[in-house]
Computed example of a mutant assay.
Amino acid sequence: MGYKISNTLSQLKVLELLRVKIVSTEGIGGLNLLEYLSLNVTALMNASDLWRELKNLKNLRFFRLVVRDDNVIPLGLISNLHKLKVFGFTAVGVRDEREEKEFVKELECSSNLEELWVVITTKGALNKLLNSTKLQSCIYGLALHDVGGQVNGLLLLAIMSKMKHMKYLELSDLKNEIDLSVCDTCRLSMLQDIYIHDCNTIRHLTWLKYAPLLQELYVLCCYSIEEVINGEIILEEDEKDTIFPSLEVLILRKLPNLWSIHETILSFPSLKSIHVADCENLKKLPFDSNLAKAKLRLIKGFQEWWDNLEWDDLATKATFHSKFLELQPL
């Protein structure tokens, strides 16, 4: 069903539209008291008309825009929203590199922007972002999708460490363009959630040991990953509590070369659930009986994987058995 915005709502200060098809933008520019706007658009008949109407929302302070059409970038919009402090933009599909660079430049020039959640899909736009101290200071959520060309992984991690407010990071479809197996210069002090999908040059995720507030880690379809934390890094006894101290959810799926989370026992003081599927070479979990007494409630995986897990002793296996839930094949 199409959605037409009526100017009878002119006194609204908050508007949230979820999964709508916008067939007409008539009237939205008249909502001049609007301060909070969240749009999740499944189809947009004329993007330029929408941007023109939205430019009139001079009191807008919060704007979240999700567009599911290909190649939709709100060029010329943000520079007209002078009170905008929080902006989130997600769009599915391939983008024009020149337009995306212009969009990032426009974000950089936004005078009041304090919090930014954004998806980047081209190398030119990524380089523009990585060279902008202003944008680095207000990044709260960053997603890199199918960024073409060779990207310096060491430089990327070093600059992400400067994003002092970044809570969410997503790396998707970065097949042969980037290697994030480096870790020496990385400090992700505020990172809480990370989603890694189809990144096939990453061998391990040791750099995440520098994310002390990380709560959820999703790693899917990364065929090159062999370890989560590199086993060559020797941990002192007091360091084991500093690896993933806040991690609550760990999801590992379709990682055929993954053989280790870490070679030694980790304490995982906050872990509540771990889901493992299609990781046939992961034969051992870095758990001991102390974890079973902590917050861990669920180990989810296929029965064959569970039956083939190796344990230091039968008592430890028995301790965790009650927490195992069998995944059903699709």
Rank of each mutant, 00 (worst) to 15 (best):
K167N: 13
L84W: 03
R95V: 12
L169I: 10
S111P: 08
L174S: 08
R64A: 12
K101I: 15
L126W: 02
E102H: 03
S161Y: 01
A125I: 07
S181K: 07
S181A: 10
S110P: 07
Y168L: 13
E99L: 09
K162F: 04
F87Q: 04
F62W: 11
N71S: 11
A91N: 14
T133W: 02
R187A: 13
C186D: 00
G149R: 06
S181P: 12
Q150N: 12
S137W: 00
W117S: 13
G153A: 14
N152M: 06
L135Q: 06
K58M: 06
L154G: 00
A143Y: 04
C109I: 04
L60D: 05
L107T: 08
L142C: 09
C186L: 11
D69M: 10
H145C: 06
Q150C: 07
H165E: 13
F63T: 08
M163G: 05
N152H: 08
L155M: 14
V119Q: 05
L144K: 01
A91S: 14
C109L: 13
R64Q: 13
E106K: 05
L84F: 06
A158G: 12
K85M: 10
R61Q: 14
G153F: 07
N71P: 06
K123W: 00
T121A: 13
S172K: 11
I73Q: 02
L174C: 11
E97V: 08
L157N: 05
I159Q: 13
I73M: 09
F63P: 04
V66L: 14
R68E: 14
T90R: 08
A158D: 15
N127R: 10
E97F: 01
I73F: 01
K167E: 15
K105Q: 12
L171F: 14
F87M: 08
I159K: 15
N176F: 09
T121E: 09
V119E: 05
L129V: 12
N127P: 02
I139D: 02
L65A: 08
D70H: 10
L130N: 05
V104M: 14
S172H: 06
